[in-house]
Design a protein around this nucleic acid. Structure first.
Length: 227
DNA sequence: GCGACAG
DNA sequence: ATCTTGTCGC
């Protein structure tokens, strides 16, 4: 029941140590989708700050596939120890996310995370990092770009364009609905580029963001603070 | 040295 | 991330 978290390292690190850990951890990433992968429970994950910046509050909402009905949800908080440093977001937000996952009553098949997967300077964005410590398939869904170059995808829903760092494919720029700014989708762990796009689209109905993430957003920033 | 820079 | 209302456009 719930999600088991592997403790691979401490969260409070300085920038140099954080980057060193990322270089080491990326070696353990798997960019292949499990054989016959058919997720039935997708978790949308989001984190935000409260207490005027002193606390991270994270929310997880698990939905069924393909119907996208809420199955379970959880909220938790953790001290905001680390500042926000581009490239080191996971060290700041994951402590809260881990706390929320630990109190979840079900085990998701797939994690959709706000931010990048491998579309990161050292290929270890928050979705890749979370996938590693949970050992679950994970996808990074960013609302904006961290690194990489691309050609603008066409404006209809489903249009895609490769995101590259030099000649290396690091993600996909995806139009999740007609005439909206695209999403930056990249594999986190146990996931291919192609399947990442497929499952993100499977969660997008009438809004730019996947439903599980919209639900998690609401929960994480709800005024009636559950946690 | 200068600009870029997930949430 | 967060500050903030109505408004223009697909």
């Amino acid at each position: 029941m719930g999600v088991t978290i592997r403790t691979l390292h401490p969260w409070a690190v300085d920038a140099a140590e954080g980057r060193r850990l990322q270089h080491t951890l990326r070696e353990q990433l798997c960019l292949k989708t499990p054989r016959g992968f058919r997720p039935q429970r997708v978790a949308g994950i989001d984190a935000g700050i409260v207490d005027g910046g002193r606390t991270i509050r994270a929310a997880v909402v698990v939905m069924s596939l393909p119907d996208l009905q809420v199955i379970a949800q959880s909220v938790a908080r953790a001290p905001a120890i680390m500042p926000y440093i581009p490239g080191l977001l996971s060290f700041r937000e994951l402590p809260g996310v881990v706390a929320a996952l630990e109190r979840l009553e079900v085990t998701p098949d797939l994690l959709l995370c706000d931010g990048q997967g491998i579309a990161h300077p050292r290929r270890l964005g928050i979705a890749a990092h979370l996938g590693l410590i949970t050992d679950l398939p994970a996808i990074g869904v960013g609302k904006s770009r961290l690194v990489g170059t691309y050609r603008e995808p066409r404006s209809e829903k489903g249009a895609t364009s490769g995101l590259y760092d030099g000649h290396e494919r690091i993600g996909t720029v995806l139009r999740s609905r007609d005439h909206v700014r695209p999403l930056y989708v990249s594999p986190g762990h146990r996931m291919s580029h192609e399947d990442a796009v497929h499952w993100v689209l499977a969660c997008c109905t009438r809004y730019r963001l996947p439903e599980p993430q919209r639900a998690a957003d609401r929960l994480a920033s709800a005024k009636e603070a559950p946690a």
